[in-house]
């Protein structure tokens, strides 16, 4: 059975290395600051014992006051999982760091979030629309689109 790691335990581990980066540590998920997302993601991937080498899914959600990107991480070796979240409060031009350098699976998934929600990912090699055609105006999955 895949053990869903508690956000609180991981928060305890991270607080030591990256102070002030954890915003909220709940039982099911871990919310971190957008600026420290890349470092925390690298830490989660490379630390022995955690070894989150498999990024299952990247989803974007539009809560009306902010955008939230949810990363579902899994470790194949240890068979445990974690939910990592990052928020972005800028409505006009939301930007988050990209994790493509760590997990190439984010390549298409981040492009899709950019296409449908409008969140730009810094450091993505090929950020263009994927599901809609070039020249489409607007981002359909936003709550204020239709």
């Amino acid at each position: 059975m895949t053990l869903a790691l508690s956000g609180k335990d991981i928060a305890a581990k991270i607080e030591g290395k990256f102070p002030k980066s954890v915003v909220e540590a709940a039982a099911e998920s871990l919310l971190v600051e957008a600026e420290s997302l890349s470092e925390i993601a690298a830490y989660l991937k490379n630390t022995p014992g955690l070894d989150f080498d498999y990024l299952t899914a990247v989803s974007g959600v539009d809560y009306l006051d902010c955008f939230e990107v949810v990363y579902h991480l899994t470790s194949i070796e240890h068979n445990h999982s974690l939910v990592l979240k990052a928020r972005c409060y800028n409505r006009e031009n939301p930007v988050l760091p990209s994790v493509v350098g760590l997990w190439r699976t984010a390549d298409f998934q981040e492009r899709e979030i950019y296409d449908l929600l409008g969140i730009s990912f810094e450091g993505h090699p090929n950020l263009k629309r994927i599901a809609l055609w070039e020249g489409f105006e607007g981002h359909p999955l936003r709550k204020d689109f239709l």
């Binding site: 989803s59 959600v61 539009d62 579902h72 699976t105 298409f108 899709e112």
Partner: peptide, 22 residues
């Protein structure tokens, strides 16, 4: 993601073939 109403707030599909194509 649910907000307590009769329809989901967010419905996201983790599509295996989409990711396999990377």
């Amino acid at each position: 993601v649910s907000d307590g109403s009769i329809a989901p707030y967010r419905f996201h599909v983790r599509a295996p073939t989409f990711i396999n194509l990377t």
